[in-house]
Design a binder for these strands. Structure first.
Lengths: 169, 169
DNA sequence: AACGTTTGTTTGCGGCATACAAGTATCACT
DNA sequence: AGTGATACTTGTATGCCGCAAACAAACGTT
């Protein structure tokens, strides 16, 4: 049995509020390395776990390939990443974190952590953990929904169009 | 005693993930009234509780006054809101929801609610409520932090600059 | 080995959303 | 009336993004 529409409504409203607040925050927040666009942080975080190809990054960050391509180029120009053509396939570019990029990543992480820590000054560790768990679970649901939407939309003309589908919203 | 840096770090990472996912979602989501920019929804939601002046809306939505001014103008052109000069003060414009706006608002709310409901298909009502409560509390913390940042930054030159201040991040 | 096709990346272009700053209108106070 | 503060609007610039075309390399077929 699903949650009530009422509950879903208040949840969505609250979520939108938080997102808007965070977006507004980012604009005023100082960055450890002003040359690096904050919009490229997602790829920065992603290549932390090893070299990745552009398309892979686009997939991970849920962005268009072209967007990631630019972000990667910028990161390279700013010295926080390198781009090398894959020896096994001359088409793919492997994006790798440089030492400087490592340092930047640590700085960003540390700064964010401190900010969140001060933000949640009156939270208990249990509450924070529980909140994180909920967020993560919610993120999984979003990703699943997104995956469903993406695999169905680009279907060939003969695709069975299942009448009214709430998932498309 | 605050939460650990580690916990703060994972929380921030998770939050960023969710936000990015939602932002990506919005782009593919159909709107009940395509003429109305989704970016103006925040003001739409805000004037639901009664006529508001532009500056008030800017404050509520955490946007610049100019941004809200344009959004309000658009909403008026699209027939979902009206703009009337305050009889008590010829400078202020009161933005009010029209009947059509009411209908649109309901449609948007309903659609969102349904989406969230399907998204959280396997959540219990208690979990959803708890998640919402956390989000709300987090939003409050964000707002408080923002308020602190705003009241301190535009201070006169003689303001006492309290050395290192994590709140500014 | 040559050619068309598929795949991966880059670049040109346009659109959207926003903030800052300048301009305009109204008000409040003297 | 005149001066400054206040509320909004408009001009301008910037950032970010996605689509589509261009480009490059690999693959498969003949």
């Amino acid at each position: 049995m699903p949650i009530t529409l009422e509950a879903a409504s208040t949840l969505s409203t609250t979520l939108v509020r938080v997102i808007k607040l965070i977006k507004g925050m980012r604009h005023h927040a100082p960055t450890p390395h002003p040359e690096v666009d904050a919009s490229a942080y997602p790829v920065l975080f992603t290549i932390a776990s090893g070299p990745k190809r552009v398309s892979e990054l686009a997939d991970c960050t849920h962005s268009d390939v072209s967007t990631v391509s630019r972000q990667a180029s910028n990161l390279v120009n700013q010295g926080v990443a390198t781009k090398v053509t894959d020896p096994d396939d001359g088409r793919v570019q492997l994006i790798t974190l440089t030492a400087e990029g490592q340092a930047l990543l640590e700085a960003v992480k540390g700064q964010r952590s401190q900010w969140f820590q001060s933000l949640l000054a009156d939270w208990t560790s249990e509450e924070a953990a529980e909140f994180t768990a909920y967020l993560d679970r919610f993120g999984d649901a979003l990703e699943a929904s997104r995956a469903r939407a993406l695999t169905r939309t680009p279907a060939p003309p003969g695709a069975p169009h299942t009448s009214t589908d709430p998932q498309e919203n």
